[in-house]
Amino acid sequence: NKFNKEMRNAYWEILLLPNLNEQQKRAFIRSLYDDPSQSANLLAEAKKLNDAQA
């Protein structure tokens, strides 16, 4: 399933972002589970926040 693969990839990438705190990571991951079809958008948002907090 395409969404499962995308979601899994986004999950691990979000977990490994160094500048997000645990609460932020949990919020993004919760959103991933709520709507896996938004994986790419959520990952992009997480990366943007990660860069902003660098």
Rank of each mutant, 00 (worst) to 15 (best):
K47R: 08
W12G: 09
A44I: 11
D34K: 11
L49Y: 11
P18F: 04
A44Y: 10
L32S: 01
A52G: 12
Y11S: 04
S37V: 05
L16V: 06
A10P: 01
K5R: 02
R8K: 13
D34R: 09
F28W: 07
K5L: 01
Q53M: 12
P36F: 07
A52V: 10
K47Y: 09
E6M: 02
P36A: 08
E6W: 01
D34S: 14
L17S: 10
I29F: 07
S37L: 08
Q53E: 13
E45K: 12
A46H: 00
D51L: 15
S39R: 10
Y33F: 12
R8Q: 13
A10R: 03
R30M: 03
I14T: 01
Q53N: 09
Q38S: 11
L15H: 14
Q53R: 01
A52S: 14
S31T: 09
K2I: 12
A46T: 02
L16D: 10
D34V: 12
P18R: 12
R30Y: 11
P18S: 08
I29W: 05
N50F: 01
K25P: 00
I14G: 00
A27V: 10
S31F: 08
Y33P: 02
K47W: 02
Q38W: 10
K2W: 06
D51I: 11
Q38I: 11
I14Y: 00
E13K: 15
N4P: 09
K5G: 03
S39Y: 15
L42T: 12
S31A: 10
P18T: 04
P18Q: 11
A27F: 09
A46Q: 00
D51P: 02
F3N: 07
L20K: 00
W12V: 06
L16M: 08
R26W: 04
N50G: 05
A27K: 10
S31H: 13
E45F: 07
A52L: 11
K5W: 04
A46G: 02
W12M: 06
L16S: 06
R30V: 14
E6K: 03
S31R: 10
Y11F: 09
D34T: 06
A10Q: 02
N4I: 06
L32H: 01
P18M: 08
N41A: 05
N19L: 10
A46P: 00
S37K: 05
K5F: 02
Q38R: 10
Y33A: 03
P36I: 04
K48P: 00
E13H: 12
M7W: 15
Q23Y: 11
L32G: 01
A54M: 13
R26A: 07
Q23H: 12
K47N: 09
Y11K: 14
Y33G: 03
Q38P: 02
I29P: 00
I29T: 14
I14E: 00
E22N: 07
A27M: 11
D51M: 15
W12T: 13
D51R: 10
R26H: 06
M7T: 08
E22S: 10
I29A: 04
S37H: 04
A52Y: 15
E13N: 13
Q23P: 09
S31K: 11
L17D: 01
E6Y: 02
L17M: 11
N19H: 15
S37E: 09
R26K: 07
L49A: 15
K48D: 08
R8W: 13
E45T: 13
D35T: 08
L20F: 02
W12P: 01
A52N: 09
N4T: 03
A27L: 07
R8Y: 08
A54H: 13
N19T: 08
Y33I: 05
S31V: 10
A44N: 14
R30D: 06
E45N: 11
E22T: 11
P18H: 07
Q53A: 07
N41T: 13
L43K: 09
L17P: 00
Q23G: 11
F28Q: 01
M7H: 05
D51G: 15
A10K: 03
A54F: 13
Q24E: 09
K2H: 15
E13F: 09
D35Y: 08
N9H: 09
P18G: 10
L49S: 06
R26L: 05
K25L: 04
P18N: 12
L49F: 07
N19Y: 10
R30A: 13
L42H: 14
S31I: 09
Y11R: 15
K25H: 02
I14S: 00
L43P: 01
L32T: 01
Y33V: 06
L16W: 14
K25T: 05
R30W: 12
N50D: 07
Y11W: 05
L15T: 15
N21F: 15
L43Y: 04
N9D: 12
P36K: 05
N19A: 05
A44L: 10
K48E: 13
W12N: 15
F3R: 01
K47M: 04
I14M: 09
Q24Y: 04
Q38A: 11
L49N: 06
L15F: 08
N19F: 08
R8N: 06
S39T: 09
N19E: 10
R8L: 14
S39Q: 04
K47H: 13
Q24A: 06
Y11N: 02
K25S: 03
N50Q: 05
N19D: 09
L20D: 00
F28G: 00
P36E: 04
N1D: 15
L49E: 09
Y11Q: 08
E45I: 07
K47T: 05
K5N: 05
L49K: 13
A40F: 10
N19W: 08
I29N: 01
A40T: 07
E13T: 09
R30P: 00
E45R: 12
A54T: 12
Q53V: 15
E22R: 06
N1T: 04
Q23I: 10
K48G: 13
E13S: 10
A27N: 14
A46W: 00
F28V: 03
Y33K: 04
W12I: 05
D35W: 04
N9P: 02
A27H: 15
N9M: 12
A54G: 14
R26V: 14
Q23N: 08
A40R: 06
E45M: 12
K48R: 06
L16F: 13
Q53K: 01
N21S: 05
E22H: 06
A44H: 06
A54K: 01
K2M: 09
Q24G: 01
Q23L: 12
E13W: 07
D51E: 15
N1V: 04
A52T: 09
N21E: 14
L20Y: 00
K25A: 03
Q24H: 07
P18A: 08
Q23W: 14
R30G: 09
L32P: 00
K2F: 12
A10S: 04
L15N: 09
A10V: 09
S37R: 11
R8I: 08
A40K: 14
L20E: 00
F3M: 04
R8H: 05
F3A: 04
I29Q: 03
Q24T: 07
P36S: 08
Q53F: 11
L15Q: 14
A54V: 11
A27E: 04
N41M: 08
L49I: 11
K25V: 06
L20N: 00
A10N: 04
Q53W: 15
A44K: 12
N50P: 01
L32F: 03
E45W: 14
L17Q: 12
A40N: 09
L16G: 15
N50W: 01
D35S: 10
Y11T: 05
R26T: 10
F28S: 03
D35M: 10
D35N: 10
L20G: 00
K48Y: 10
P36V: 04
L20M: 05
E22F: 07
N1P: 03
I14F: 02
S37Y: 12
A44M: 13
L20T: 00
N9I: 14
N19V: 08
K47S: 06
F28R: 01
A40E: 08
K47V: 12
Q53I: 13
D51S: 10
R26M: 07
K47A: 06
R26N: 09
L42S: 07
D34P: 03
F3H: 07
A54P: 09
N9G: 04
K2Q: 15
L43T: 06
K2Y: 04
Q24V: 08
E22P: 09
I29L: 05
L43I: 05
N21R: 08
N9S: 14
N21W: 14
F28H: 03
N9W: 06
A52H: 10
D34H: 05
K5T: 02
N1L: 03
I14R: 00
F3E: 07
N4S: 03
A40D: 08
K25M: 05
L49P: 00
L42P: 02
R8D: 09
S37T: 11
N21G: 09
Y33M: 13
N9R: 15
K25G: 01
Y33D: 02
Y11V: 13
S37I: 11
N50K: 01
I14W: 00
M7I: 08
L42I: 15
L32Y: 01
L20P: 00
K2R: 09
N4G: 11
K2N: 14
R8S: 08
A10G: 02
N4Y: 06
Q38V: 09
Q38G: 09
N9E: 13
D51H: 14
P18E: 07
S31G: 13
A46F: 01
S39N: 03
S37G: 03
A40M: 11
A54E: 14
K25R: 07
N41Q: 10
I29S: 03
L32N: 01
D34W: 06
E13P: 01
K47I: 05
F28I: 08
L43V: 06
E13I: 15
L20A: 01
R26Y: 07
S39V: 13
I14Q: 00
F28D: 00
P18V: 05
N19P: 00
A52K: 11
S39I: 02
A40W: 11
W12S: 14
A10H: 04
A27W: 10
K48T: 12
P36M: 05
F28L: 08
L15Y: 03
Q38T: 05
P36Y: 05
N1F: 01
Q23A: 08
I29R: 03
L43R: 12
A52M: 12
I14L: 07
P36Q: 06
L43M: 07
A40Y: 13
W12Y: 15
S39A: 04
S39G: 09
R26S: 04
N21Y: 15
A27T: 14
A54R: 00
E22K: 06
E22Y: 08
K2G: 14
N19K: 06
D34E: 15
N41L: 10
A44V: 06
L15R: 12
A46D: 00
D51V: 11
A52Q: 07
E22Q: 12
E13R: 14
L20V: 08
A52W: 13
A44W: 13
A54D: 13
A54N: 08
A46V: 04
M7L: 14
D35E: 08
L15P: 01
N50H: 03
Y11E: 15
S37D: 13
N1K: 04
E45P: 00
L16T: 14
L20I: 06
E45Y: 13
Q24M: 06
L16N: 14
K2L: 10
N1Q: 05
E45D: 13
Q24L: 07
